[in-house]
Each structure stands twice: as C-alpha cells, then as structure tokens.
Simulated scan of single mutants.
Amino acid sequence: MLAIARRYWRADQTHDFRLDPSPEYVRYEGLWDEKRKEFNRWEALLQELQRALPDCKVWDYTPPTANPSFGALVYPPSEEVTHRPQVTWTVAGYLSILAPVYTVHCVRREFLGHQLRSAKAFLGPIPLELRGIADIVARGIEAHYGATALPLEVAQTPVPLYVNLMKPPETTLFHALFTADPWNIL
C-alpha cells in the first residue's frame, strides 16, 4: 500500500511553492480524470444505499482531487425538533481511487445551537447503534466494487508522505488512501 501511495503523494515539500506540479500530482490528477468517468456507477451505489436505508439521508461526498476516494455520508434519523441536536453522528464510507480498498467510520459532531463546536472521527469500532448502517455501506461497496476493507491496524500505519495538509509523522495510510481530514464533513 505504501508503494501505491508514494506514486501519488510526495515525501517532501519541494513543489509546494512552485508553479509546475509535481510528477505525483500529475499522476493523481490523471487518475481522477479516469475515475470521474465512473461517477455514474458511484451514484448508483448511493441510490441503492438510500433505498436500503430509507430513514437515513445518504449524500455523496466526493470532492475530486481533494480526497483520493469516492465518499458516501449517511445521516441516521434524528428526532425532529426546532433546534439542531447537540450531538450528531454520521457514518462515512470511502472507496479509494488508488487501491481496491475501502473504509467505513463514524464522525461525531457537537453543536452549540447551530454552531459546530467540535468534530471527531472514530476510525475504530463503530458504535453499536450505527453498526447496522455501517454494515450496509460496507456490503454495498464490496458488492459494487469488489473492494476489501482496509484493516484499522494497516490504515493507521504511519507513512512519510505529505497528503494535502497532513504532514509526517502524523500522516497514515488512511490519509493517503481515503482522506486527510476524516472529521471534516458536510
């Protein structure tokens, strides 16, 4: 996995302030150009997830070139109240464009009124009340793409790469294959 990630992410910052893109970024943009052609396939999966989870809201979260993955956000039902809930949970599923792997994790967000106070990604075990949703997302990605779940212990492997704003020694395979900021969702 590290060898794959190195094809698209640099181990230094020598191109940060240059006008010409790095060879890694040129490859990354080229790969996204190819993968954009598969977006209808991704949308079909999202529609299938919405049918399987009728009480949830399923959203696409694929900002091309910002993340090296297609992304799905699933918002579980919440009580209808006039004010936004203080704590919300979201199930996030990412399918890497770099390798045939995926991940499903949760994001917990806390609000004060309508203002976001904090957001935290939970890459480890899925909370019990969200496991059914996470399982449906995982099975959908596996069925549509034949991808394999990247084990957490592998995903958390540190890599000496610069991935967007993530820098070594904090960068992991998770960041290089899925997203550099898993807590930053809609």
Rank of each mutant, 00 (worst) to 15 (best):
P125K: 08
P158Y: 07
A138V: 14
G146A: 11
P125L: 04
P169E: 11
V104L: 02
F174G: 00
I133P: 02
G124L: 08
R117L: 14
M166Y: 00
L152K: 04
C106P: 01
R139N: 13
V137H: 03
E170I: 05
T179E: 10
I136H: 00
H114E: 11
Y145W: 14
H144C: 08
T172L: 12
L112S: 04
I126A: 06
A134K: 10
V104Q: 01
I133G: 03
I141H: 00
A176C: 13
I136P: 00
Q115C: 07
P125T: 13
N164L: 02
V137M: 07
E129I: 08
H105P: 06
G146M: 05
T179D: 10
L112C: 02
G140H: 02
L123S: 08
L152P: 01
A121D: 10
A147I: 04
A155Y: 10
P151G: 11
P169N: 06
V154K: 09
G132H: 13
A134P: 02
C106T: 15
T157R: 14
D135E: 15
Y162M: 02
L130D: 03
F122Y: 08
T179N: 14
L152M: 09
M166I: 13
D135T: 15
Q115S: 12
A176E: 12
N164H: 03
A147E: 10
R108M: 12
R131G: 06
A138P: 08
L112G: 11
V101P: 01
